[in-house]
Design a protein around this nucleic acid. Structure first.
Lengths: 232, 232
DNA sequence: ATCCTTGTTTGCGCCAGCGCAAAGACAGAA
DNA sequence: TTCTGTCTTTGCGCTGGCGCAAACAAGGAT
């Protein structure tokens, strides 16, 4: 196990830690266990008893579910400052999703007794946790509606735009999605198949809306993609 | 405006009011505004500023969203003791969904200042609100996965089973869903079309799994339906 | 009793999206 | 450099589900 990250390494504006600073922030961070995850390693699995919850300090986690037949559905990618499984730990439930590190990730984990102690001492933590849950419910309601009513191509467009907003990097060519994504990943996020994703991206590439390579997407014409995502 | 419901009329075991009893329960209920809704009348619309939140005392509300093209998606039916829009009010946001009374409903509504006052005075309220949100997120994640990975018939089966669990009444013939539902409603809940719902129900009726009429569904063979919903 | 509105069923044709299969492209390992 | 495993593309055929249209059914209102 590596040493706890330096305080200066802990990202500011974190969701969990919003409203906590100075010595308090120090205390909260030091009460947790630092954890390093290598690419593609599993942090926890859907169905396991939730004993620890985590905040991403650096890197990125993929949160997904599997159905009975083993088909994967990506619910979300989370990055610096975001939380996962806090509620499951608090309630003593099982993890509702599987969390996998995308690249190399650096996390801080807390167990339940620590969480309870910190929540009692630092009131912003409970509030911040509630906000996380609310924001996710809201997001999921919208995606549920999209999945229910929109065509596949439209949903793929929305997926790219969502990922662009959450993980976009400006480049001379356009905005690059900084998460390595296979066609299968995009399909699992959009509720379709890798073949349809591939065909769709090919079309958009010919239209110069995007530029794509192996696990790489650069959005060269966001405006066109937005228009398409809204009108089909 | 009619008078506040008698305390004896307020259902016990309510989600919002769990852990509150006696004079306290009285105080909370009396701080709200009673409201009677006639069948199919709109309580609030998606996009309106959320000024009041509600608890269903008797009856049932349909919570739905519309996409840009006007296609409706049913997110949930809620009944006695369940809450809606508490968070939107608390956060001063817009209602994220539209709420319509199914039959005649009796509600209690509270505004934001009252909510804040009650939350400060009665700590179970905040906890109960959090639990409502969590339960819905959990439910929605599962349905999102189903929508993403399962076939239409399977999803229709799951919809019937969900409604059966939440609104089932035992009858000599089987378990009847006590909500009047059109084929369109079932379609909006399952993410399909009224035609496909009609065809599917016809098939199941021939197999004697269900018995259906105008806005009526009786599940005569729940076991078969469960098996089908899990295996396709 | 009759009309009228709202809901239901089903035939029919269509097509968006699926998924196999096979070939090609890329990147890291050795 | 070559090999190997992973990822991507695209032709092809198929089908689940869509949606129009038209007939039928069930209440409620007058």
């Amino acid at each position: 196990m590596e040493s706890a990250p330096l305080l200066s390494d802990v990202e500011q504006g974190l969701y969990l830690l919003k409203g906590i600073s100075g010595a308090d922030l120090d205390e909260v961070v030091n009460a947790g266990f630092p954890k390093i995850l290598h690419p593609k390693s599993v942090l926890f699995r859907q169905g396991d008893l939730a004993t620890m919850f985590f905040m991403v300090n650096h890197g990125r986690l993929k949160l997904s579910m599997m159905n009975e037949q083993g088909r994967e559905v990506i619910l979300r990618y989370i990055s610096s400052g975001e939380l996962t499984a806090a509620v499951a730990v608090l309630k003593g439930r099982n993890y509702p999703v599987t969390a996998v590190s995308v690249g190399k990730s650096e996390l801080i984990g807390w167990d339940k007794p620590t969480l309870l102690r910190l929540m009692a001492k630092f009131s912003p933590i409970a509030v911040n946790m509630l906000n996380v849950v609310l924001e996710r419910l809201d997001d999921l309601q919208n995606r549920y509606m999209e999945l229910s009513t929109e065509q596949v191509k439209q949903r793929i467009a929305r997926t790219l735009l969502r990922l662009m907003q959450r993980a976009g990097l400006k480049t001379p060519e356009g905005i690059q999605i900084s998460i390595p994504l296979t066609r299968q990943d995009i399909a699992d996020y959009s509720g379709t198949t890798l073949y349809t994703v591939s065909r769709t991206l090919s079309i958009w590439e010919k239209k110069d809306w995007i530029r794509s390579g192996r696990e790489t997407i650069v959005i060269t014409n966001p405006h066109a993609l937005v228009a398409f995502s809204e009108t089909g």
